[in-house]
Write a protein that binds this DNA or RNA. Sequence first.
DNA 1: ATTCTATTTTCAGTTTATTGTCAGGAACTT
DNA 2: AAGTTCCTGACAATAAACTGAAAATAGAAT
Lengths: 224, 224
Amino acid sequence: MRILLVEDTEGLGEVIQDQVADEGHAVDWVKCISQADSSLRTTDYDLILLDLMLPDGNGIDLLKKIRNLGETTPVIILTARDQISDRINGLNAGADDYLVKPFDLSELCARIAAVSRRYAGNPNPIIHLGALEVDMTKHLIFRDGITVNLTAREWALLEAFIQRPGTLLSKSQLEDHLYAFGSEIESNTIEVYISRLRKKLGKDQLETVRGLGYRMGYSGPQGR
Amino acid sequence: MRILLVEDTEGLGEVIQDQVADEGHAVDWVKCISQADSSLRTTDYDLILLDLMLPDGNGIDLLKKIRNLGETTPVIILTARDQISDRINGLNAGADDYLVKPFDLSELCARIAAVSRRYAGNPNPIIHLGALEVDMTKHLIFRDGITVNLTAREWALLEAFIQRPGTLLSKSQLEDHLYAFGSEIESNTIEVYISRLRKKLGKDQLETVRGLGYRMGYSGPQGR
DNA sequence: ATTCTATTTTCAGTTTATTGTCAGGAACTT
DNA sequence: AAGTTCCTGACAATAAACTGAAAATAGAAT
């Protein structure tokens, strides 16, 4: 379970980490100091914890921005006790829940667990490979957070590797994955597409095993 | 929260139960095969999910009956893909929202949450996409504040994208959304409507993924 | 019914991105 | 060094998508 924590004060992240990690979920949290940082890719997270006390603007605006993108990731608002109006605005802006500071950690964990249970049914399979993030269902790829556009063939090739991470795939296997039976290829098409993928995804992602084929996704013992 | 589910097919009830139950509301659903069954005491429920495909008559009539009794319980209509006119009639007859089958469960949950929130005195779900402002329930679109008029087909197409923001939709998926099963399309209708939508909504809204389909609502191109 | 209007669907010509191929060079193996 | 194997820029052929406009259809008004 990946949690995006948007706050400017410190410490909460570690605490959540410690508390929730033991419950079986992996907590992968990110601290964002500003709106600018966090407004990027909320799709990658299963839950957003949003502190309304951001230095550079109202957190409500950020929430609205997220919802306006059609994003349905659940959001729990963290708010100080004296900001009652903020809570109401937050819920109106599309928050799923809110907690008033200071709150009990067990309370927070309970809410997190509830949310994670609710969303366990439809996990969005997002694959992380180093700097790459691949959303298989939405057909989206990010490299260091930047969208990468792949053509149909390029995507198909990548797919072959993602389906068998760490497996060595020969060129003829890859051809079989890309082309229908009859249509035989008589040039170095695979090599060309490997090259194109490397250019778009980064050199390190695809490993060449001379004489045998290519491999992606595991270990990269590097360098030689 | 008590939900009255009026449908003749099976399965949806349990699913909704599972999905929504954890939100803290108690979901109390009832399956009704016929109008007769359901016309009973709608007052007892907080929300009505109405499938328009009832065996013994048009669900619209039921909705009208309910509204004529002065009943204000929110109603979400579930409608099959080929019944565009029904959707419009449904809204006119007093429905609060509607979903086209097949729909994402998360989408349904969001609408349920939205309706229940709205029912608590809050604003309706307006979706913002860049310069666009889409009021799903009122069937209104504004572009930079100016009203945009869409035809039935154009709206139906837009709907497909809004229901699954950021998702890549193939032309055949879009055809399935627009047309009943039997009626097959043998020309470039989808392309034509994409073109018309772009003209009305702005070029940037719909992204082409050559060879695969179209996408709306997420991420600028770039990269590449 | 008949006409009129708006929408839907089809068609065709144009534009654009992708694909597969090649060729020269780089890198590895022996 | 000689012989493979792989890499990658360039390019023509191809396939996909765009779009204006005509034809067909549906809907409303008379």
